[in-house]
């Protein structure tokens, strides 16, 4: 297994801070723009997540829906995404990139072909929102065989028994959903409760890198500093929406936002 994701966590740990992970939608608002955004923010990131837009995203809130919609309107296809990943990795070979999407996009493309393409383009990890345990066992194995980290999710509703099974079958990174919600809503639970859930997961297997995501913004990020990693998605997508609306350059605005996020966790 190649170690780019583990290394990213190690590097952050050395600096005594959580890994900063962005989520943007590939192709938002155009193919080139989305690559420019990622290139520009990557200096402040430890790991980049790129969403594969789907037009029936049943677990996403308004902000990510808007981003996906723009990307699809501008004609993004899965093959474009692989090409863009390749271009990104060409200049930043050690920056891990995780693709995140819905299973339909993979199913339609063909699991094996999809994984092969991920491998040759340099994808380091995959999150498939609607392919949960235990239905994801075979796919996770296929990822493992191809040195791709399959990231599983744990929600506040996940039972302890299930949590243990998920952790046992997980690769190096686990994604903890902060609250009962789709992406992009405000945190419904207190920071204390979220950290308690996080610690509970960590205790089961301390060697796994556990990141917290959903609802993290500039305002809340510093309170969650004790996690291995923090994912900010909707807040960034919202900034792209705002920039486009105000006819400003999303690249500079998003870069500024990500810099601010980084400053809050160092």
């Amino acid at each position: 297994m190649k170690n780019s994701i583990n290394n990213a966590f190690k590097a952050a740990k050395k600096e005594n801070r959580p890994a900063l992970i962005s989520y943007t939608v590939c192709g938002d608002n155009t193919k080139d723009k989305s690559l420019q955004i990622l290139n520009s923010i990557s200096k402040d990131l430890d790991i980049a997540e790129w969403g594969i837009p789907h037009n029936c995203p049943t677990a996403d809130g308004k902000d990510i829906q808007n981003s996906s919609y723009r990307a699809l309107q501008n004609g993004i296809r899965l093959n474009d995404i692989f090409k863009l990943v390749k271009r990104f990795k060409k200049t930043k070979p050690s920056k891990p990139i995780i693709l995140m999407g819905y299973y339909q996009m993979i199913f339609n493309y063909g699991e094996k072909k999809f994984i092969r393409k991920c491998k040759v383009s340099g994808v380091d990890g995959l999150i498939v929102v609607d392919l949960s345990f235990p239905d994801n066992k075979n796919f996770a194995k296929l990822c493992m065989k191809n040195s791709i980290c399959f990231v599983q999710l744990i929600a506040p509703t996940t039972t302890v028994k299930r949590m243990k099974e998920i952790i046992r079958s997980s690769h190096e990174m686990i994604y903890m959903i902060s609250t009962i919600s789709t992406t992009g809503s405000a945190l419904k639970y207190s920071i204390k409760r979220i950290i308690k859930n996080y610690n509970f997961i960590k205790k089961i297997k301390p060697s796994k890198n556990v990141v917290i995501g959903f609802g993290i913004t500039e305002k809340t990020i510093s309170n969650l500093k004790s996690a291995d990693g923090l994912v900010v998605g909707s807040a960034i997508c919202r900034e792209i929406t705002r920039s486009l609306r105000d006819r400003q350059n999303p690249v500079t605005n998003v870069s500024k936002l990500v810099r601010k996020l980084k400053n809050k966790i160092i």
Partner: peptide, 21 residues
């Protein structure tokens, strides 16, 4: 046991949050 009919239709393709409910 995974909710598939004829090995082909159905299943539970949903977010982790929904699994327990």
């Amino acid at each position: 046991k995974f909710g598939f009919y004829g090995n082909k239709f159905g299943g539970n393709y949903c977010a982790e949050t929904m699994r327990k409910p």
